[in-house]
């Protein structure tokens, strides 16, 4: 009795969690393609999902957005995925080390912009301006991809940044700029696009030297590998390129 308790417990937990996870569906589609995508792709992939479902009747696309490293951990830990689109190559490498990456291809690149409030009160025009006294700067922490890119451009420009905060993700950086707490923040150009009304992006030449590559792949062991390949083709094809460009990405 006592020994069986943990097992019964685990079963109960799993059942409860599974019950939470499965939403009630309409006429059940016969097939489902599961996509794990970096959060910065939310808008673009949302459009592509509709397109894909329209072209493949009876197929349901389920996209799970999240931080690239979280998603990579999920795949390594056995979560089923037919497509994995990451915001950087290092997280794809994590999956590759586990032998699950398949054949990743870069389908988009993203680069940094200086995000400033719409009225740009500190008159920021270049990376060097960020080091001026009295400028409250917020960046990503070096441990996360946007922070690594930030370090790279700063080094390239020979600018020593003194951020007021090193945030754990790019959305937090943007949030501080939107709230008016920061005079400037370093974020991706796609983030600036997404908040076009509240912030403005200032381009700077060094950004090109720290482009972020977005790889996409059909992980090995994908339950619906064929559908996954078709989704990747959609992303890399004309429709995908247009949607990506509209969101601020550059496409190879």
């Amino acid at each position: 009795m006592r020994a069986r308790a943990p097992l019964g417990l685990a079963v109960a937990l799993v059942l409860a969690l599974a019950a939470c996870g499965s939403g009630g569906g309409n006429p059940a589609p016969r097939r489902t393609v599961t996509v794990l995508a970096a959060a910065s792709l939310t808008e673009v992939f949302g459009r592509l999902e509709q397109r894909f479902e329209a072209e493949h009747p009876g197929v349901d696309v389920k996209i799970s957005y999240g931080g690239s490293s979280d998603l990579a951990q999920q795949i390594v830990n056995g979560a089923p995925a037919d497509v994995f689109a990451a915001a950087n190559t290092s997280t794809m490498d994590t999956v590759a080390r586990a032998g699950l990456a398949g054949q990743p291809r870069v389908f988009a690149t993203n680069e940094l912009r200086i995000a400033v409030p719409a009225d740009n009160p500190k008159n920021i025009g270049s990376l060097a301006d960020l080091a001026k006294d009295g400028v409250v700067l917020v960046v990503c922490a070096p441990q996360v991809p946007c922070g690594a890119a930030t370090q790279k451009v700063a080094t390239a420009a020979g600018v020593r940044l003194r951020p007021a905060s090193e945030e754990p993700d790019v959305k937090s950086v943007l949030g501080k700029v939107v709230a008016g707490e920061a005079d400037a923040g370093l974020v991706y150009v796609t983030d600036v696009h997404a908040r076009g009304d509240r912030v403005r992006g200032v381009a700077f030449p060094e950004a090109a030297g720290a482009r972020n590559d977005y790889p996409i792949t059909v992980p090995s062991g994908a339950p619906e590998a064929e559908l996954g390949r078709q989704f990747v083709e959609l992303v890399r094809g004309q429709v995908g390129r247009e949607a990506l460009t509209a969101a601020g990405f550059q496409v190879p």
Binding site: G67, V138, A141, Q143, V144, A164, S165, E166, E167, P168
Partner: peptide, 22 residues
């Protein structure tokens, strides 16, 4: 408060950050 080592990055924030990389 944001997140800056030694100034505003408390242990929970450090954990959240490290889980991205390590």
């Amino acid at each position: 408060a944001g997140s800056l080592a030694g100034q505003t990055r408390t242990l929970p924030l450090e954990i959240y950050l490290q889980r991205e990389s390590d």
